[in-house]
Simulated scan of single mutants.
Amino acid sequence: MEKVQLITKLKTIVQPYIQDEEAFKNLTEETDFVKDLKINSANLVDVILDVEEVFDIRIENDEMEKMLSVKAAMDIVNAKLEAK
């Protein structure tokens, strides 16, 4: 999936869970879900579940542990989509 399209979809998914509006406005690949957007761990699970639903993929536990930034999420989603 194209990078811009993927970032746009991820922004839509994480928006309900963010605590830092300014960091969200400046979201890039380097944005950290917990440190920058202040998404707590319970909501991070919700983000992952939403990502699975939107992209129709299954994210394994070891991948979930790595999915802490926009870049990591993009890498995992792209790998899953390519494997389909």
Rank of each mutant, 00 (worst) to 15 (best):
L81I: 15
T28E: 04
L81F: 06
I7G: 00
A79S: 12
D50V: 12
F33Q: 03
N43Y: 05
Q5P: 01
M67D: 04
M1C: 10
F33L: 14
E2I: 05
K11C: 11
V77Y: 00
I18S: 08
I18A: 02
F33M: 10
S41E: 13
I7P: 11
Y17R: 09
P16A: 12
K80A: 00
V51N: 05
M64V: 11
N43M: 11
E60I: 02
I18N: 04
L37E: 08
L6I: 10
T31W: 00
K9H: 11
T8K: 15
L37Q: 10
V14F: 01
D32F: 06
V47D: 10
N78W: 06
K38F: 07
M67V: 03
E53R: 08
I39F: 11
K71C: 05
L27M: 15
E21V: 15
A23S: 02
R58Y: 10
M74W: 03
L37Y: 01
E22T: 09
F55W: 03
D56T: 15
L68N: 15
V70H: 06
I59E: 00
T31A: 04
I18Y: 01
L37F: 07
D50W: 07
M64L: 13
T12N: 13
K25G: 04
A72Y: 02
I76Q: 00
L81P: 04
L68V: 14
L44G: 02
V47C: 12
K11E: 11
L10I: 15
F55C: 02
N40I: 04
D36G: 09
S69T: 14
K25D: 12
P16F: 04
E82P: 02
L68D: 14
F33N: 01
L6P: 06
N61H: 07
V34G: 04
L27Y: 08
E65T: 04
L27N: 07
A79T: 06
V34N: 12
V54F: 01
V47M: 09
K38D: 10
N61Q: 14
L68C: 11
A79Q: 09
D56N: 15
I18K: 06
N78E: 15
L6A: 09
E65D: 12
D62I: 06
I57M: 01
P16M: 14
K71T: 10
I18D: 03
V14T: 03
M74A: 15
K9Q: 14
N40M: 08
I13Q: 14
V14Y: 02
E22C: 01
L37A: 09
I57H: 06
K71I: 11
